[in-house]
């Protein structure tokens, strides 16, 4: 896992990635590969602040001030959402989001749960990756 660039700002990797907030719990779909995700602990709040235009560095400073023990895990979470192509660096600056992040950061450290059980419905290359007897969408078992 490579570290995320914490100085630049990120945005959701639209149109392939979509997310929804369910009373503070975020669910994310990657429509390009069929993976979907749920965020736990303070991950949902970090995600919301990133989509609102806050740079990861600002978020980490805020976490450092209130919950220093969660900084390392938060850096890992940021690197993970970049690695999973859920966010990308913003091309245009969203404007002034330098206002202080007023966040208690209560709760557990950030976690991302990855689900790939439906990926074969769209991600398997239907020509090469399917079981010849069962056909698409049953993926070929690894040899």
């Amino acid at each position: 896992m490579t570290a995320a660039d914490t100085s630049c700002k990120y945005e959701i990797n639209a149109p392939d990635v979509v997310s929804e907030d369910f009373t503070g719990q975020i669910v994310i779909l990657n429509l390009a590969n069929g993976h979907y995700f749920s965020l736990a602990g303070i991950a949902s709040r970090i995600w919301t602040l990133i989509l609102a235009g806050h740079a990861p560095r600002s978020i980490l400073i805020s976490i450092q001030a209130k919950r220093p023990e969660l900084v390392e895990q938060s850096m890992g979470f940021l690197a993970r959402i970049v690695e999973l192509n859920l966010v990308r660096a913003r091309e245009a600056d969203p404007g002034d989001t330098s206002s202080a992040i007023d966040e208690a950061w209560s709760g557990d450290g950030p976690e991302i749960q990855v689900y790939d059980d439906l990926a074969e419905l769209i991600f398997a290359d239907p020509i090469h990756d399917v079981d010849e007897r069962e056909g698409w969408p049953a993926p070929r078992q690894p040899r």
């Binding site: 929804e20 439906l118 769209i122």
Partner: peptide
């Protein structure tokens, strides 16, 4: 509700091609 979303939305979106964002 997010547990329900995980059970309903991905399956409902990925089972039928097209209009995925609107479906979600």
């Amino acid at each position: 509700s997010h547990e329900a979303a995980l059970a309903l939305a991905p399956s409902a979106v990925f089972q039928l091609p097209g209009d995925a964002t609107e479906g979600f």
